[in-house]
Amino acid sequence: MYTELNSILNSGPDSFTQGEFILLSDRQSDASFLVHHFLSLYLRARCKVCFLGLVQSFSHYSAVSQRLGVSLTQAKEKGQLIFLEGLNESLTLLIPQKTDTGSEAMDFIRDPTVGLRRLFEFVRCSLQSSGGEEEDEWGPPVLLVDDVSVLLSLGVSAGAVLDFSHYCRATVCSQLQGNMVMLVRCNGEEEEDGGDEEGSELLLKGLTHQCSLTLNVRGLPTGYCRDIHGQVEVCWRRKEGDGQNTQKKLFQYKFSPLEVAAPLALLLSGVRGRRSEVPEEPDNQEERCTFTLASGPRRAAL
């Protein structure tokens, strides 16, 4: 959990806006550190979390969270965390074992045309409180997906993923007043027109229309730099109360490993920009702060 990021987003384990759909995206960069951030944030906030980990194994997420000071195994045992290990589930579907105990959430792998209804039902069953004591025990429900682009490569159409996210939003954000965090990755260039319309670009646009906050991670436009590892564009949409439609800010970040045992530090210098403009003058750098984190953003390739 990056405390500085929390202060930028006006959130924290004690207080955060409910009913938000946060869209994380990256373009030729890696935004998985944000997934770990939100996972640890919501677990600390005592939310009931449903995590669809389609990219990495449970032990990976667990190891990263361990260094962030959150134990996934304990959370799972307590019933706070419901983890769908996409790698394992798809394997049991592709190579059926004798003791077939895999859930039906991932059965779209067999026939991608049926859509993601089963996956949504898995999410709904996981997060809908069954009443009684559990309701008091855990806070608002949270759905985390890492990452939805994997569904595309499993053969699901972008439209079906958008339907899935719509249903999740209607249930989690609107009905249960919880939060939803999804990661989309785009590998192509931004100005790609027409070529990739069916794929991740369409998915990103569709999800952008749905969400209330986007965090877009990308490399520096000026190229590699030793002191800054990339930039995050934060865009608030739909701030009805303020009468403001969209608000954009640009921040630059740096991971700096200190010692092996000590947490890694992430240095973040904020550059405030209006809309899509990127101010280049060094005078505009307003904030420079360090935020500590217990793991690097390491991630194996798919």
Binding site: K205, T208, H209, R238, E240, N245, T246, S276
Partner: peptide, 8 residues
């Protein structure tokens, strides 16, 4: 478009 919502 994604850059500006016409919902308002």
């Amino acid at each position: 478009c994604a850059g500006y919502s016409g919902r308002r």
